[in-house]
Design a binder for these strands. Structure first.
Length: 758
DNA sequence: GGAAGGCGTA
């Protein structure tokens, strides 16, 4: 071998002495031959010096680092041993498979081998798959075929191991043909690898075909199938197949248990889960972290936190997954604060644990805490992933926090967070619920793979923002795209009809649900119909719908009728609706308030006093009106008469100025809905301090001229605030967007998108 | 003549 072909970082002749000392075998040899003992005195009968080859091989076997390997490599070149295929293979094997190995160096060594054996090729392929460079592995395999070397039964498991989805899709089928062509189709190792490749491609039926053809005597074959079913979320199939495995009496491995437990967790099947736990105990399987985590996960998913905690407590080692399992278990049961205690105790938190906790707050509607935790996550320098993004976007949607939502969108683009359909759908929802329909539309257009949820989010979003016709057009387009609507889509469709007063269209769609898509209307859909008819003033027809619906009307359905009674000032029917609601939901404070509004509007003051007394007697409290406004990424909260804000002085000054400006253009306070038994002046002062007015004043102070003011209100907007917002939009040339409990009001140039119909 | 395949958490 010419010297020029030796890698330059090897110093052949300069092996340092300390290296020789550390590596005692060579050192002993050198000592022997250089010590004072004369060679002649060593009798060959007593001592046969090991051959150089044996020594080097021994060294290769104890080699720990690339530096060491390079020294050995240089020795093999110096002594001429490199030409020995066994030595070549061992050098390559170290570089390819040792934890400190190096594939670049493996290539350099490999390139010096004139005619590599199939073993050497296999080792190289294995090396690439170990470091997830599967494409290089495939290229290596093709090189091998070009060099007229035939694969053996080791080649394919190495090659196919750990393929990513895209590599599997690209090469899987073709390599399967090679397997068959070279006659390894019935090798169980190859079959296991192929099952895995096909399940990665989503071709679970082909995987199952291979499984059915296999001898089914190797637990790993079964495990590969379980893993495939779990990946496709076909947990029932995992459970069913495990039943067959039990019948067959085949010995499970700990991986079998992990996979089956994972399926049980998803299915919330405590029975099978417990059975697996019993097997684990009976089989005397060494407790291992992954298995214990799977047990915790299964018990936590089934709500059995006592058992989960017991396992958690007995564990020798716990990792972030064990802790996250416990935290999620409590979150599933709605015990958010308990979950938070465990979360705070975690020695290490990763993005999964942070996201789980954030999502936990979300599920119990504690949105502000979710956002606070997200900020903490960022100060801890933990990178959020697409799941975190979906959770945070959903919090933004609930709070109407557009600025933060926009920031998340920028973050996704900047840091290349996986922008999948889930994220896109969450963005649409966020933009719509923050009142920015234009941005929602553009996200909608960008989503390549629109699913049912994408369309539904857009339809519902358009409907609540008052773009009823566009929502219905979108629904037609959805049907043309052959996407099947579900019951939520229809809620959006009916809502679109309601908010634009399209009664006949509403009826048509309602009957189309069953006739065209076999979706039986649920109580929400009947509620929509009552709302639709009621708002259009057809109160009697609305009542007929309630009387004829096939299920028991809930308080929301009666509430829809009550809302219509308010708009159309029908106190008699309102009394009836209230009676029904209070039977179903006796502590519903909002109902008393609405009835008071109606009595006040109809000027039935005696009735009004009675209801107010009833509220006092029963200790019913009015839900305090609360408005949110986001400014510079911070959500500010105002309740009626609020004086807790740091800028409260300025806010009230602005409010005074605002009111006098508006009075100048003809504003008269509308106190018709105030039901407090107080003088007219006090009524004015009561509506004057409504939370949305405070938020509007705050918004006017803190934003640039011309900037849109966005407010989220927890209750229905009152008539007076609605009038004020219209005037503010005109007098100050501002767009004001208020999201109330059920819909959006886009105020522009003195009028509202709801056309005063809400 | 030497080497091998499967797993868990939002």
């Amino acid at each position: 071998m010419p010297l020029s072909s030796i890698p330059s970082n090897i110093r052949i002749l300069q092996i340092p002495l300390n290296f020789l000392k550390q590596n005692s075998l060579i050192f002993t040899q050198i000592k022997m031959f250089t010590s004072s003992t004369s060679l002649a005195s060593i009798s060959p009968a007593h001592f046969t010096p090991p051959s150089q080859q044996t020594l080097l091989v021994t060294h290769l076997e104890t080699c720990k680092s690339m530096d060491h390997l390079k020294q050995i490599h240089s020795q093999t070149i110096k002594t001429g041993l490199f030409t020995n295929p066994s030595v070549q293979n061992k050098l390559i094997a170290f570089c390819c498979t040792h934890e400190n190995g190096n594939m670049d160096y493996a290539c350099q060594v490999f390139d010096k081998i004139p005619q590599p054996t199939v073993f050497a090729w296999n080792t190289m392929i294995k090396g690439y798959s170990r470091i997830d460079l599967h494409r290089n592995g495939v290229l290596m395999y093709l090189d091998m075929l070009n060099s007229d070397v035939k694969p053996d039964h080791y080649t394919f498991p190495f090659l196919l191991k750990g393929f990513s989805r895209d590599v599997a899709l690209k090469f899987g089928k073709e390599l399967h043909c090679h397997v068959v062509k070279f006659g390894f189709g019935s090798n169980v190792f190859v079959q296991n690898a192929l099952i895995n490749v096909y399940s990665l491609c989503g071709e679970i039926d082909v995987a199952q075909g291979i499984f059915d053809m296999s001898c089914k005597e190797d637990a790993v074959t079964w495990n590969a199938m379980f893993s495939g079913y779990n990946r496709m979320k076909r947990y029932e199939d995992t459970r069913k197949l495990f039943g067959e495995m039990e019948l067959k009496g085949l010995l499970s491995t700990s991986v079998t248990f992990v996979l089956v437990l994972s399926a049980c967790a998803k299915l919330k099947d405590l029975d099978v889960g417990k059975r697996v736990h019993r097997y684990v105990k009976e089989c005397n399987i060494e407790p291992n972290l992954i298995l214990e985590n799977a047990l915790i996960d299964m018990y936590a998913a089934c709500g059995e936190m006592d058992v989960a905690l017991e396992i958690f407590g007995m564990m020798k080692n716990r990792d972030v997954i064990s802790w996250t399992g416990i935290v999620s278990g409590f979150l599933n049961r709605g015990q958010v604060d308990l979950a938070r205690e465990f979360f705070d105790d975690m020695p290490i938190k990763d993005y999964v644990s942070w996201t789980a906790m954030i999502d936990g707050y979300l599920r119990v509607n504690r949105f502000k805490e979710a956002l606070t935790l997200f900020r903490e996550m960022q100060t801890s320098n933990i990178r959020p992933d697409e799941f975190t993004m979906v959770s945070i976007l959903s919090a933004c949607a609930h709070l109407g926090a557009l600025e933060l939502g926009e920031w998340i969108k920028t973050y996704i683009d900047k840091y290349k967070v996986k922008n999948d359909t889930f994220v896109g759908n969450a963005l649409i929802d966020m933009y719509c619920k923050c009142g920015n329909v234009e941005k929602a539309r553009s996200i909608f257009r960008e989503i390549l793979r629109k699913d049912k949820f994408t369309w539904t989010a857009m339809i519902v979003g358009l409907a609540i923002n008052g773009h009823g016709q566009e929502a219905l057009d979108m629904f037609s387009e959805m049907l043309r795209a052959s996407i099947t609507p579900d019951e939520v889509t229809y809620v959006g469709v009916l809502c679109a009809c309601t908010h634009t007063g399209m009664v006949d269209e509403g009826r048509k769609y309602f009957s189309g649900m069953t006739s065209q898509h076999s979706i039986e209307p649920n109580v929400t859909h009947y509620g929509c119909m009552v709302d639709l008819l009621g708002r259009a003033g057809r109160l009697k027809e609305a009542l007929e719908v309630i009387k004829n619906m096939p299920m028991k009307p809930n308080s929301i359905v009666w509430g829809a009728l009550l809302g219509a009674c308010r708009v159309h000032k029908d106190a008699e029917m309102a009394e009836m609706a209230v009676k029904q609601i209070l039977e179903l939901d006796p502590d519903n404070g909002a109902v008393y308030v609405l009835l008071c509004n109606i009595y006040a509007a109809c000027n039935r003051l005696d009735n009004l006093r009675e209801v107010r007394q009833l509220m006092l007697d029963r200790g019913i409290k009015k839900t305090p009106g609360c408005s949110l406004i986001e400014m510079n990424g911070v959500v500010h909260e105002f309740v009626a008469g609020d004086q807790s804000h740091p800028e409260t002085g300025e806010i009230y000054l602005k409010l005074e100025k605002m009111t006098s400006d508006l009075k100048f253009v003809g504003y008269l306070p509308d106190t018709s809905e105030v039901f407090l038994d107080i003088g007219e002046e006090e009524k004015e002062s009561a509506v004057y301090r409504h939370s949305e007015k405070l938020a509007m004043a705050f918004g006017l102070i803190n934003s640039e001229p011309g900037a849109t003011i966005r407010i989220v209100k927890n209750l229905r907007m009152c008539v007076d605030c609605h009038r004020v917002a219209k005037l503010v939009s005109k007098v100050y040339d501002r767009e004001v967007i208020v999201r109330d409990k059920t819909r959006f009001h886009h105020f522009r140039d003195g009028s509202c998108s709801c056309k005063d119909y809400w």
